[in-house]
Computed example of a mutant assay.
Amino acid sequence: MVAAEIWLYLAAASVALFAGVVKGAVGFAMPMIMISGLASFMPAEQALVALILPTLLTNAVQALRQGAGEAWASVRDYKRMIATLVIFVLLTAQAVPLIPQAVLLGALGVPIVAFALTQLAGRQIRFDAKNRGLVEVLTGVVGGVYGGVSGVWGPPIIALLVSLEAEKRESVRVQGVVYSIGSVALLAGHLGSGVITMDRLGLSVWLLPPALAGLWFGFAIQDRLDARRFRRWTLVVLAITGLNLIRRALSV
């Protein structure tokens, strides 16, 4: 392995470790951190494949922390959103090879920066949840379209859970369940899109140990840190990395 490849693997492992810590501590943001961090020094398609297995495994751990019964109950409760999200992930994943690199980098960077800055400004996105069925379907469409292209589907789902005033434990569990199923759909979609290669999948496997180590470390420190301050600094990092993606999009 040449020096450049060693550097890439170590840098990618550092991103996965940090993303795992954040996910364990606050329950979300792993795909956003990984896609923005990894795409800062590797092609966007490679970054997208690299995040698939770490997010799939860590989300499964998060989903099952309260037991399989609770996880299955979340599947039943949010079945409309999950079904819609899966369909649109499978559909939009096929478009990734057709999207120019500059457009893909910009499509990744702009929403990440927008999400981070609105959160830092204290503005929580909410939906009108009076017609829950319709809102779930719309959430699945938005999350699925963006998830198939970038692996990031968190913001609309978080907005839905906030709008429904989901209890904290339920919110974390539902996110784990939805993201796990979405990750399986993302893997299946890109097996058909041609984006996944053995080298890229090998990098994704390489990132599993640091992602899991970070997740468990995040669980351990969850109750010991000032969660608000930690989340704020996470959003700052997201905003910076998202701006770097936009910079790269403009320079391609």
Rank of each mutant, 00 (worst) to 15 (best):
M1W: 12
V2S: 13
V2M: 13
A3N: 12
A3H: 12
W7P: 00
W7G: 15
L10K: 06
A12I: 08
V15I: 13
V15T: 07
A16V: 01
L17D: 04
L17Q: 04
A19H: 00
G20S: 10
A25R: 05
G27E: 12
G27V: 13
F28S: 10
P31H: 08
I33P: 04
I35L: 06
L38W: 02
F41K: 01
M42D: 06
M42W: 05
P43G: 03
E45A: 14
Q46T: 15
L51H: 00
I52P: 02
T55I: 12
L56G: 05
L56N: 01
N59E: 08
N59W: 07
A60N: 03
Q62W: 01
L64Y: 04
E70G: 13
V75F: 06
D77I: 08
R80F: 14
R80Q: 13
M81I: 10
A83L: 15
T84F: 11
I87H: 03
V96D: 05
L98I: 04
I99P: 00
P100Y: 08
V103A: 13
L104H: 01
A107I: 15
G109W: 00
V110S: 01
A116Q: 04
A116R: 02
L120N: 11
Q124H: 14
I125P: 07
R126C: 07
F127C: 00
A129R: 00
K130R: 15
G133M: 11
L138M: 14
V141F: 11
G144L: 12
G147D: 06
G151I: 07
V152Q: 05
P156R: 06
I157D: 09
L160M: 15
L161N: 09
S163D: 12
L164V: 11
E165D: 12
E170M: 15
V172T: 10
Y179W: 10
A185E: 05
L186Y: 03
A188Y: 07
H190R: 08
T197P: 01
T197H: 07
D199C: 03
L201S: 00
L203F: 08
V205K: 05
L207S: 07
L208R: 01
L208Q: 03
A211R: 08
A213M: 15
L215P: 09
L215H: 11
G218I: 09
F219S: 00
A220Q: 14
L225Q: 04
L225Y: 05
L225I: 15
D226H: 07
A227T: 14
F230L: 03
R231Y: 07
R232H: 10
G242L: 04
L245E: 13
L245P: 09
A249K: 05
A249D: 06
S251A: 15
